[in-house]
Design a protein around this nucleic acid. Structure first.
Length: 278
DNA sequence: AACCTGCACAACCGCCATGAT
DNA sequence: TATCATGGCGGTTGTGCAGGT
């Protein structure tokens, strides 16, 4: 049996709030407060709205000192930085910006910042992947392929979150390696195209929280750069320690989703350093 | 002028966490 | 300890508007 609905769905109004409803809710809350219960508030206030809807309306638009639109460059950087650290924890991100709501920040990211910092989802060829909206960040094409064994299993969101939690703090073992993702947003650090890269691979052991991450680039000459080894089934694995780019930061900034591996089925040779992409 | 398309934003839905009983 | 009600959150959808054809 499912959960009982929080309100009588048949008798509540949905959709845009009218100025009259706003005024009613605002007056009631300023006079009586929530009384610790949003569910019964609309009835007391004389509104035909769901309690959750009232709460959302108040928190996002009616409460004092709410700012709408006009995000500053500094706020862009805050959002970008925190997103790389913790992912889509919008309420936490919003808490770092007085007057901003999680909904506002989420919408702003989804409609503006994501396009600026992430490549388009469908890249069929390397030439397709120049994001027309990207300014200083021109990101390389990323091949998406299947992985074949446990060692290279696809990263799960849950694991990503754990990694974010770990990575967002100081590195207990090496403070000099502590992560400061701000440069990822503001510098050329992520712009591997300046090195002629046309392809990037990232990988990480998805079975547990790990302190390592991997990155490889394929340049215009077909050379794959990085250090690691070739796995017969899973393709090429690159690896370096904690001092490298944290997986989830790069993954979220570039791809916003699952891990990718550069794979070629005919590759089966161990290697170290640069090698010819076969 | 009418229609289409994409964008921005407001609001809703459903899941999970938390606190009260 | 178990159950339930409510709050909180993130993902998704709906709607209105602007610009293009």
């Amino acid at each position: 049996m499912g959960r009982a609905p929080c309100c009588d769905k048949a008798n509540v109004k949905k959709g845009q709030w009218s100025p009259e409803e706003d005024a009613t809710l605002k007056t009631y809350l300023e006079t009586y407060g929530t009384g610790g219960n949003w569910i019964h508030l609309p009835q007391k206030a004389g509104l035909r709205r769901c309690g959750k809807s009232c709460r959302l309306r108040w928190l996002n638009y009616l409460r004092p000192n709410i700012k709408h639109g006009g995000f500053t460059e500094e706020e862009d950087n805050i959002i970008c930085t925190l997103y790389t650290q913790m992912g889509s924890r919008w309420s936490i991100i919003a808490s770092h910006m007085p007057g901003r709501t999680d909904n506002d920040v989420k919408n702003y990211w989804n409609t503006k910042l994501k396009k600026r910092f992430l490549p388009p989802k469908q890249c069929l060829t390397a030439n397709d992947c120049k994001n027309p909206n990207a300014s200083s960040l021109t990101l390389p094409y990323v091949p998406k392929v299947e992985t074949h064994d446990d060692q290279f299993q696809t990263q799960t969101p849950a694991t990503l979150q754990m990694l974010s939690d770990v990575n967002s703090g100081l590195n207990a073992y090496n403070p000099s390696s502590s992560l400061n993702p701000t440069p990822l947003c503001n510098s050329k650090l992520m712009d591997l195209s300046q090195f002629g890269a046309t392809s990037v691979s990232l990988s990480q052991d998805g079975s547990s929280v790990s302190d390592s991450c991997s990155i490889a680039t394929v340049d215009k000459c077909g050379l794959l750069h990085g250090n690691g080894f070739i796995n017969e089934d899973a393709g090429i694995s690159m690896d370096f320690g904690f001092g490298g780019l944290p997986y989830d930061i790069v993954n979220q900034m570039w791809f916003g989703e699952k891990a990718s591996e550069v794979v070629h089925p005919t590759c089966s040779t161990s290697f170290e350093g640069d090698f010819i992409f076969c």
